[in-house]
Structure formats: C-alpha cells, structure tokens
C-alpha cells in the first residue's frame, strides 16, 4: 500500500514537473480522523481526487480516531517538511503544542470539517467547515416553501442527544419554520443517527399520530434515519414522498436512490469536498500570499427530484459512503 502511494506520488510529481503547473511542487499532509463513518471515507476519497486534479502530492495519515496518532502524524509531516498540513481534529482541545511547532516551522495548517477551541485560533491558517445550523435552516426553508400556506404537522428525528451537530441542525430548522405559523413540530425524538432507530422511532410516531394520516412531513437530522423512516412509512401503508414530505441532511447515496424512486423529497448536502477549498486557499497563500478568511464555509446545497437523483446516486456510490 505504502509502496503504491509512493509510486503514485512519484508519478504525480513527475507528471506535474513536466507540465510545469503552478502548484506542482506542493506536498500536503492530511491527518484524517479515521474511518468512523461512510462520510469520512467519502471525504478521504474526494480529497485524493481533488489533490490529483491540482497535481498536489497528497499524503494521508489515518489516525484511527486517536488524537495521539494525529499529533504523531503532524510531527512527522513537519519533519518531512511538507508545504501545508490538513487536519480533521478528532477533538477540539489539546492541539496548541503541536500547532505551535508547525507554526514555528512556517507550515500553514488548515482544519477540515471540524473546528478547535478558540485558544488555538491564531495557530492555524483557516478552517473549512460546514455550518450545521445553516444546514437545518436550508431544510426548514425548503419545507416552508413547499407547503406554502397549508397547515403542516412535522415530526422530527433528532441525532444523538448532546451531539453538537444534532443540536445545531435542530436549531437551524426551528428558526427557519418559526415565522411560519402553519408549520408545527408535533413530535421530536432521537434516532441516534442510525437506520434501525430511525425506523423504530418513526413506527411509534405513526401510531401516536393516528396511523400517520396527520403527519405532513418528516425532518431527519441525517439521511440514514430517513432511510429507516421511509421503510417504516411503507410498512404502515403510507406513501413517503407523496403523502408525507421528507427532508433530511447529508446527501448520502442511498437517499438519492429513494428520491429517484419518489419515496423521498429533499436532502441537504454535507459536502465531502472539504479539501478542495482548502487546496485553493493554500495555493493562493503560497503563490500570492493571500491570507484566507479564518473560516471558509462550505455550501449546504439542497437536492430534490429535479436534480437527476439517479445520476447523483451513480456518481456518489463509489466514494465509500
């Protein structure tokens, strides 16, 4: 594997030097958290593709969900004298020392997907993350626009209790529907971000709301719970996508399959392409000295049946979700 990566790196760099591209000589190290979820795997494969597109030599260190491994990886990147370091921090604290070392070696650090504590603000170049409050708001606005003035009872499948993503996605959605008095959140429970729990919770929602006839829309904090909820609705004789509107977040491949089949309506993308904007920021910083803003927000794009879901499914399914 290592040999393969080395070979690929050599090929890429030779190719790049013959082409004489601007970013050709850049070597960037990426300390990835590990393979905690399908999204992570997709982020890794998209990052590799984005690096290849820009002829950047890209080294990935898998930390297996351990901060100590990430710190080791960063130190080894510093020792190798890379041009920049990408870091997807597994936790928010404990980075000051190693980031100082990177700073002293004049290696810019870019945070991907997650932020660190405010004390380390001046130790990194920029953070590329998604705004999960905004994601919830996009979902809420889509629902408000779709139902118009009709009264609508919404049930919500929350993420894991206490997870910041769940809190934020709820907050954004609540704010977006607050100004629409016809939309009411009637039930809200946690589905722990999983399909099985999403299905179980939806089953009980359907029974508690008169066989589901009173439910106008389902909002789920992630697509996996929605996939479970769709099964629960089908088993209860409801038609998700037509009888009951659905909107969820993440844009994993399976939800596009459901949208293509007319069983789901909308999803808000948490893009796995965090590295793309980060590469651009580093290249601009290295070439022209442009200092990027401290926070680069990724786009939270809304997808519906109008966006050729089958095609998106085909393009996403190989990414490792």
């Amino acid at each position: 594997m290592k040999f393969k990566a080395l070979l690929a790196a050599t090929v890429v760099s030779t190719l790049a030097s013959t082409l004489g591209a601007q970013a050709a000589d850049l070597t960037i190290g990426f300390s990835q958290i590990g393979s905690e979820s399908g999204w992570r795997a997709a982020e890794t494969s998209v990052s590799k593709a984005e690096a290849k597109k820009r002829d950047i030599t890209f080294k990935i260190a898998d930390a297996q969900q351990k901060q100590e491994n990430q710190i080791k990886a960063i130190r080894s990147f510093i020792a190798q004298g890379v041009d920049a370091i990408f870091l997807a921090p597994v936790v928010a604290t404990g980075w000051d020392q190693v980031l100082k070392e990177a700073k002293e070696s004049k290696i810019p650090v870019v945070l991907l997907d997650r932020d660190i504590d405010a004390s380390g603000k001046d130790l990194y170049l920029t953070a590329v993350t998604s705004d999960s409050v905004h994601e919830g708001a996009v979902a809420g606005e889509w629902l408000a626009k779709t139902v118009g003035d009709k009264p609508c009872a919404v049930v919500e499948l929350q993420g894991t209790v206490g997870a910041s993503v769940a809190t934020n996605r709820k907050k954004g959605f609540d704010t977006a529907i607050a100004s629409h008095s016809n939309i009411k959140l009637v039930r809200s429970q946690t589905g722990d971000f999983t399909r099985a729990k999403g299905k179980e919770v939806m089953e009980s929602f359907i029974k508690a709301e008169g066989g589901g006839k009173n439910i106008c829309a389902v909002y789920a904090h992630n697509d996996d719970m929605m996939v479970g909820a769709i099964q629960a609705m089908k088993e209860a004789g409801l038609k998700p996508g037509t009888d009951v509107l659905t909107v969820s977040i993440d844009a994993v491949p399976d939800i596009f399959k459901a949208i293509a089949a007319g069983e789901a309506n909308a999803t808000v993308e948490l893009t796995p392409n965090m590295a793309g904007p980060a590469f651009d920021a580093v290249v601009a910083y290295k070439d022209k000295g442009t200092v990027p803003p401290k926070w680069i927000q990724t786009e939270s794009k809304l997808y519906t049946s109008a966006d050729d879901p089958q095609k998106i499914y085909e393009s996403k399914k190989g990414l490792g979700y």
Binding site: E200, E203, S204, K207, A208, G210, E235, A236, G237
Partner: peptide
C-alpha cells in the same frame, strides 16, 4: 400515554399496532 396503544389491525397481511411493535422490536 397513548390511547391507541392496544389498537391492532392488519396491514398488508401483517399485524400492525404499538403492542405488536413491543414484541417485534
């Protein structure tokens, strides 16, 4: 807490209701 808890009906040839959920889940 839920008045329909003991309601059971057939849905696609399968028993359907909260009490059934307890056993099924």
């Amino acid at each position: 807490v839920s008045a329909q808890f003991f309601d059971i009906r057939f849905q696609d040839g399968r028993l359907f209701g909260s009490l059934i959920d307890v056993f099924n889940r």
